[in-house]
Design a protein around this nucleic acid. Structure first.
Lengths: 174, 174
DNA sequence: CCCAATCGGTTGCATCTTGCTACCGGCGTG
DNA sequence: CACGCCGGTAGCAAGATGCAACCGATTGGG
């Protein structure tokens, strides 16, 4: 059993997020959902993903509470997958990825799709990381407050398969 | 040859971003780099990743221009991996993932690490997606402006291995 | 100087995961 | 009823991931 490592009990929120949407397809499915895709075939055509992979991803995203799948409109033959509140909360993540991609992954002048404000037709403002008081914050202005290891406190061994820390170095901080 | 699908020529910036950092480890390596990790062993211990995988990821991130690896301090034995400008530009992405994880991936009251403003010791402000004029924007207020297919324009066949569009439905929008 | 421990990897192997093709039942429709 | 679309599942082949074992170059101690 060399199963994929999971971060279900990692104290870092980034790790837990990556645990849910940290593969190539999940984020693109969410992106398409934001753009209005609802049906299996819409995702499939738009992404060019294999059907079995898409089915598996839709299932895991549904289990993670990001999407909700239900038969469309009472007795229809096909299902519809729509974002839940939790899924819609990923909007800043998608926008951040989009802005990074626009800046860093295109040759100058190379055309790319853009996300526009419907009211004005103009592109969105750049995302800014700010302090509580509204001041801009750069990476060196920040520090991670690590949480002390609550190894032996209340909820020990939630996953059931924990126990020995693995043979290779297996200790995560943050 | 059923090689992994790549998005090198996808017109959507999100897809291109996912192409670079769309796996479980890359984003966590970048996160650790923001937090000050520089050495191979630091990443290895912090992440609990296998060494061969870490070596491969550091190489691809270096090739992507996100990290730069160089021997530390002129004649030292070990290399140091530091974020480039392009890597530092991922800060909003990491912050967005962190905020989503904090909100959605922890039980109420469950402890997690936090990213704090060094000046004040307080958590950062929540990221907000805004229009050009500063108004907050929700997902339904936006629309993707697709770029017309410039299939036969200037730079055809950059990758070399393109050509036939694949047997399964292979057409991406956005 | 010699032994040991790190550090930063590489290699080999077992096990997942991904991708593709084929197939299948339900439904609408000409 | 034949046909095609829709939403899948099943069965492979190839790639990615995880683990252990090894390895050369540095430190570090006695």
């Amino acid at each position: 059993m060399v199963a994929r490592i999971r971060f279900d009990d990692d104290p870092c929120p980034v790790a837990r997020s990556v645990n849910v949407i940290g593969d190539r397809w999940s984020l693109l499915i969410v992106r398409d959902a934001f753009d209005g895709s609802r049906r299996f075939s819409e995702f499939q055509r738009s992404l060019g993903i294999a059907k079995n992979i898409l089915a598996a991803r839709l299932r895991t995203l549904e289990e993670a509470g990001v999407l909700r799948g239900a038969p469309a409109s009472e007795g229809a033959s096909h299902r519809e997958y729509v974002l839940t509140d939790r899924g819609r909360a990923l909007f800043p993540v998608i926008v951040a990825l989009r802005q990074w991609g626009e800046d860093q992954c295109f040759a100058p002048g190379e055309p790319h799709s853009r996300l526009l404000d419907r009211r004005t037709g103009r592109p969105l403002r750049r995302l800014e990381v700010k302090a509580a008081d509204g001041q801009p914050v750069a990476p060196p202005d920040t520090a991670v407050e690590k949480v002390e290891d609550t190894e032996k406190t209340g909820q020990a061994g939630k996953t059931g398969k924990s126990g020995k820390p693995g043979r290779q170095s297996r200790q995560r901080k943050r």
